[in-house]
């Protein structure tokens, strides 16, 4: 597309050149209108394999129609929290209620059945089966639905049709939905993950590093999708190491440090990266009353 001097181009210019059209780096969204609580975490405690607590007595509430951002230096309990919310990890004390159902004893498929979607932090290890086709990857969690199979036999026609539909709707760049998913670029693989996770009417979306290693064009697409889901009244939990993303996308933010919530910001429009950084590194900590507000009664 050309050779430029570093001094002559801005981040915006580079993005536009890479994608081939104008990219909106600033995330545009209307104020959130939050509703009923969807996820209620109370006094949650998770011990790591080493026996050390990686989630140390945290409580928060995620409501319909809002994006709650989780900021924090990686390895401060975010991954463990996500795994516990999705049933991938057992928790030791406290409770997690999703849509008023305690999930402690539920299987992963049961939790998915509560309309929980999970965009995993590492798509290649958790998010896809690399040697299988795009459509098989999109259908991995719902192949037993009556829509796609009867009496254990899959309906090839319906599956093909669904694959084409998803590829179009999620703008996955590929020859056809039957090619192996590992022949796609990172951004397109992530869009396929989104197609799987967002297409079955979720109530809760747990987005763990949704745009990590994804090109600018796909990042923009993913941001728009998440905001659209929020506007439809879904609850979104956003975990990201990209502070710009957390501040830009989330409606409110909690900061994690050593397995605890050290700060809660109900309004993201007034926060700066610098402020967040202080809390993330454990230099500052809010009072317990300020933090308690995230429970919303």
């Amino acid at each position: 597309m050309g050779v430029y001097n570093v001094s002559d181009v801005s981040e915006q210019d580079i993005s536009n050149l890479m994608v081939g059209r104008d990219v909106i780096l600033n995330i545009e969204k209307t104020p959130a209108s939050s509703g009923k609580p969807v996820i209620q975490v109370k006094d949650l405690m998770i011990l790591c394999d080493t026996g050390k607590p990686c989630i140390n007595h945290i409580s928060f509430t995620l409501r319909e129609g809002e994006i709650l951002g989780v900021a924090g230096v990686e390895g401060n309990g975010q991954s463990e929290l996500v795994e516990a919310l999705c049933g991938l990890r057992k928790y030791n004390a406290g409770s997690i209620q999703i849509c008023k159902t305690e999930i402690k004893k539920l299987s992963i498929s049961h939790i998915r059945g509560l309309a929980v979607s999970h965009i995993p932090e590492d798509r290649m290890t958790t998010g896809v089966a690399p040697n299988l086709s795009i459509v098989e990857n999109i259908l991995s969690d719902k192949i037993s639905d009556h829509k796609f199979s009867k009496h254990g036999f899959i309906n090839k026609k319906k599956i093909k049709q669904y694959g084409l539909e998803m590829v179009k709707q999620y703008q996955i760049l590929c020859k056809n939905p039957d090619v192996r998913i590992d022949s796609l670029s990172g951004g397109n693989i992530q869009k396929a993950v989104l197609a799987r996770e967002l297409s079955n009417q979720p109530k809760v979306i747990i987005a763990d590093q949704p745009t990590r290693g994804v090109d600018v064009g796909a990042t923009e697409f993913i941001h728009k999708r998440l905001i659209a889901m929020r506007d439809e009244g879904k609850a979104v939990l956003l975990i990201s190491s990209d502070l710009n993303e957390v501040i830009g996308l989330a409606d409110s933010i909690v900061v994690f440090h050593e397995g605890q919530i050290v700060a809660y910001f109900p309004d993201t429009s007034k926060i700066t990266e610098l402020q967040l950084g202080g809390y993330m590194l454990g230099i500052h900590k809010q009072s317990s009353n300020e933090i308690k507000e995230v429970i919303h009664g």
Partner: peptide, 25 residues
């Protein structure tokens, strides 16, 4: 290649972490 069991089997064989995450037993 034509049953849900077969698809789950192939998913499990290709990436067991992913199969588990998808809710496959």
């Amino acid at each position: 290649y034509r049953t849900t069991f077969g698809m789950k089997l192939r998913i499990t064989g290709d990436n067991i972490t992913f199969a588990n995450y998808s809710g496959i037993k």
